[in-house]
Amino acid sequence: MLRTHNLALHFDEGRTKALDGVDIEIFEGEFVAITGPSGCGKSSLLNLIGTLDNPTKGELFFCNQPYSALQDLSEFRREQIGFVFQSFHLIPTLTTLGNVLVPTIGRSSDHNAIDRASDLLKLMGLESRLNHFPGQLSGGERQRVAIARALINDPAFILADEPTGSLDSTNATHVLDVIANMRLKKSLTIVMVTHDPVVAAKADREICMCDGKVISGSRRNP
């Protein structure tokens, strides 16, 4: 489903190599954890997969179609990708429901967005929190709102950057359970960046990185 070929991301005119010749493949429905020490290029790889950055070299493929052939990256992000961030990135002035609806704003043809958002929040166990503001929610609840937001447009895959990084262990476990449940219910492909081995152990496969290179797990074992 997702594939990279010789992917590189350089900064400072090539002096800093965030990614250097990364070749990985992720299959439909897979739950992949990208691990490695700080600065190894995990988040850079996630940003490239999420089209938030452009590679210096190499190519990415989604269902065998090269990213470089995509006409509208915004539409690709909106239709195919759900993002979950470590620091939630909820908009403080919007309610829980409002935050989940943010990716649907500006889509004139989306008439049942509110129903979908309400259903997702119900699935997250947040049906009693629809009109609460982020400041009134716990860390775990906020991350569940962020997951609901990532799912609102029914994406093909979820990109999660340290989704449990700001949570205590109880909330972290709860959030991981929610992600695992959603994966099963919606047949999602999940790519998760984490430096926590306990979290990584929940994934089907672990891609381990160091100094911008993949050192293990680039391909699924047969």
Partner: peptide, 10 residues
């Protein structure tokens, strides 16, 4: 940045 990441068109 978040809005753009979530698929908002510029």
């Amino acid at each position: 940045g978040l809005l753009l990441a979530l698929g908002w068109h510029p």
